[in-house]
């Protein structure tokens, strides 16, 4: 068998270093966000948003989640990296913080404004944009992962889904004019969480593994 493998040997181009792959994906994500912002203009009161602690924490968390999840997905696609637990769990820790933060904000809002604060301002466009741009951004990261050799496709899929949908949400949050926590929870947090779960489900189906015979 060894003779056959040697006979089959062809020169290969080693996979890009993780930093380069990450930069490539971030470049695509930024370009997509710019495209989205050019298509749908940025909210006019952006300066107000930048003064709101809650919105800044939210946007910062989402951005951090996008970056750590993308980094984790790209690292886990290289054999030998899957033991680095921080790459796996850190993005999920941030997602957990974001969920708790959102729930607490909704609860505070409900205490101040009553039960009507629990009803989200309907704006399906947010969820659709997250899903659409998220799908678009999943393609390049998915290709980068497929180009390597993910030994744990479920993890890679979940992290890729989280990275893509979070990056999409960063763009969406610059457009969305609804600020109530219930809207954030329903139209921002839930789509990203679902997208992550979808990635975990689709990962083993779409990402090839070395275990395939």
């Amino acid at each position: 068998m060894i003779d056959d493998l040697v006979k089959d040997l062809r020169p290969v181009r080693p996979v890009w270093p993780i930093g380069v792959r990450m930069a490539a994906w971030v470049g695509v994500a930024v370009a997509a966000a710019m495209g989205l912002l050019m298509a749908v203009s940025v909210r006019r009161d952006l300066d107000l948003v930048l003064r709101s602690g809650r919105l800044l924490i939210d946007a910062g968390t989402v951005m951090l989640m996008a970056l750590t999840a993308a980094w984790g997905a790209l690292r886990l696609s290289i054999p030998g990296e899957e033991k680095a637990w921080a790459h796996k769990y850190l993005p999920f820790g941030i997602l957990g913080f974001w969920l708790v933060f959102s729930i607490v904000q909704i609860a505070f809002d409900a205490i101040q404004a009553g039960a009507r604060a629990l009803i989200p301002d309907p704006h399906l466009a947010c969820a659709l944009l997250v899903a659409g741009a998220g799908t678009l951004l999943t393609l390049p990261i998915g290709l980068l992962i497929r180009g390597a050799a993910p030994l744990e496709p479920r993890w890679c899929g979940a992290l890729a889904g989280m990275a893509a949908s979070s990056a999409a949400l960063v763009g969406v949050e610059l457009i969305c004019v609804f600020e109530r926590p219930a809207h954030f929870g329903f139209y921002h947090v839930i789509p990203v969480t679902l997208f992550t779960a979808l990635g975990a489900w689709l990962g083993p189906k779409l990402l090839p593994t070395l275990l395939e015979k």
Binding site: M1, L9, R13, P14, P17, L211
Partner: peptide, 17 residues
Amino acid sequence: MQETLVSVHRARHTYMS
């Protein structure tokens, strides 16, 4: 062992020097 060698062969591009 043989299956792993085949996998190593397929994934050789992912080894970073």
